[in-house]
Design a protein around this nucleic acid. Sequence first.
DNA 1: TGAGATATGAGAATGATTATTTTATAGTAC
DNA 2: GTACTATAAAATAATCATTCTCATATCTCA
Lengths: 132, 132
Amino acid sequence: MIRLTTQRQIILEELAKVKTHPTASELYDMVRKRLPRIGLGTVYRNLELMAENGMILKLEVGGTQKRFDATTEDHYHIRCSRCGRVDDIDIPVIDSLVESAAKSTDYQILGHHVEFTGICPDCQKKPKPGLQ
Amino acid sequence: MIRLTTQRQIILEELAKVKTHPTASELYDMVRKRLPRIGLGTVYRNLELMAENGMILKLEVGGTQKRFDATTEDHYHIRCSRCGRVDDIDIPVIDSLVESAAKSTDYQILGHHVEFTGICPDCQKKPKPGLQ
DNA sequence: TGAGATATGAGAATGATTATTTTATAGTAC
DNA sequence: GTACTATAAAATAATCATTCTCATATCTCA
């Protein structure tokens, strides 16, 4: 396992603190409140490294930025199509999907993910500006 | 509906020609064989425009690049985790997923997408180099 | 035909991410 | 505890995908 430096520990703590799934730069802003001299590159490098080591999850969701998740158990997500925010959806994971997909493809299937899109509570309250 | 310029028509034709779902720059390379002076910006601009008009689908899948699909009916995809290639998966769309998700979120749900990950036939044949 | 609207091509600008280089810090052997 | 080595961090440059800007070209239709 990798060494738990101060920077890594604080990145991990800040990620675990929130239920939404922040981007690297959102996390950078959060971590900087506690470690003002940390570099954005350090945040990227360590998120990548921790994802490789199974300590966190790198979400391959739609949108322009990657997002990270301190919960590594398999679960589904919903993404706000206005602001890009991502939350968990608490419905059972359907393992049988992989089996039925396997019958209709020559790929060697590794996993699956369900992503819902919608409008988050915050954006519903706002007067519907042009899409962000 | 939007005007069907030469550029738009050829982009559409080239997109319809392939079953995988190309990125903007892959499409640019394909289109350039027929229209050597077309600009990459034109490809991006028109893909975006045609997606807005429901003529094609912009796939919000994982990976670093957006991908496009000439088939606008709802269906699921599989992405190769080595080369990024995306293909269709021919299993029935589960509309009830949206209903069960609606019970566990405050989002206003607009839709859903299932994305499988795996190794495509081509990459299975290759001697497993470092991830691409 | 010609005015106004719309689209294109070329290239600059932006935003996210990754790579590189230098400096600092931690771990280890003596 | 000091010197040596490995690893990580900070700063910054480079890259990649995408969007924007603007001058020119092409349509549309009165």
